Amino acid sequence: MKTQTTVQQQPAVSSGSPLVQVSGALTAIILFILLAAWLAKRFGLSGKTGSTKGLKVSASCTLGPRERVVIVDVEDARLVLGVTATQITHLHTLPPAPASVDPQPAEPVDFQSLMKNLLKRNGKA
């Protein structure tokens, strides 16, 4: 008398498995976040960080691979600084920049015009 035993083998991971679906969704979300961060950095949409209320870099000129001259506006003067990889040297002090006459408030820009300007600037439209 022979007895037959049938062993059914199930696939290790099926494409409809909840684990595969969740892993795929998580990977897609992480890739989307990285892409959004790269785009924000590329187009300058990221916010300025730090507390630089009275400090603003108004001009910069590169002199070499790691050397540059920078004009920094502070509260009551403009400083000309030499910046290298290892040090910052005060070169000269200029009088404060003249205040602009009646600055116009910036108008809010809608998303459509912003995208058109970005595409024109990159030469794609």
Rank of each mutant, 00 (worst) to 15 (best):
H92Q: 14
L45Q: 05
Q9W: 12
A25I: 04
G47S: 08
A28D: 05
G50V: 03
K56P: 03
G123K: 15
R78H: 06
G44H: 01
A12S: 01
G50A: 05
T86A: 06
L45N: 01
L31K: 14
S46I: 07
A59R: 13
R78Q: 12
K53A: 09
T6D: 07
V22I: 13
P96N: 10
A59V: 08
A37P: 00
Q9P: 02
I71W: 04
L118E: 08
K124A: 09
L91P: 12
L79Y: 04
A97E: 12
A85M: 14
T6R: 12
Q9C: 08
P108C: 02
A59E: 13
A28R: 04
L35A: 15
D102F: 15
I30H: 05
L81W: 00
V69R: 03
L114Y: 10
T49C: 07
K120C: 02
T5I: 14
D76G: 04
T89P: 06
G123W: 07
D76W: 06
T27F: 10
L55G: 02
L45G: 06
A40I: 09
P18T: 03
T89Q: 11
G82W: 01
A97K: 15
W38H: 02
P108F: 03
P103D: 03
L39K: 05
A28P: 01
T27P: 03
C61M: 10
V7K: 15
K41L: 10
F43L: 08
E107K: 15
K120N: 09
G50L: 02
Q21S: 13
A28I: 00
F43T: 00
I71A: 06
S51G: 10
I33F: 08
A125M: 15
A40L: 12
G24R: 12
T89I: 06
P96G: 04
A28N: 07
T52C: 05
L91T: 05
Q21L: 15
A28Y: 00
K116N: 11
L118K: 14
Q87I: 05
R42L: 09
T84F: 14
N122E: 15
Q9I: 13
T52K: 07
A106S: 11
V72T: 01
Q10G: 09
R42A: 03
A85E: 13
T89L: 06
I29Y: 05
L81P: 00
R121Q: 15
G64C: 02
V72D: 00
S113T: 13
K41F: 10
V72H: 00
A36N: 10
L39T: 01
G16S: 13
A37V: 14
A37F: 15
A97V: 11
V7C: 08
R68L: 05
L119H: 01
S17A: 15
Q104H: 05
V69G: 04
V80W: 00
L31D: 10
V20W: 07
N122V: 14
A12Q: 03
V83H: 01
Q87Y: 11
K41T: 03
P65V: 09
T86F: 12
L94R: 04
F111A: 11
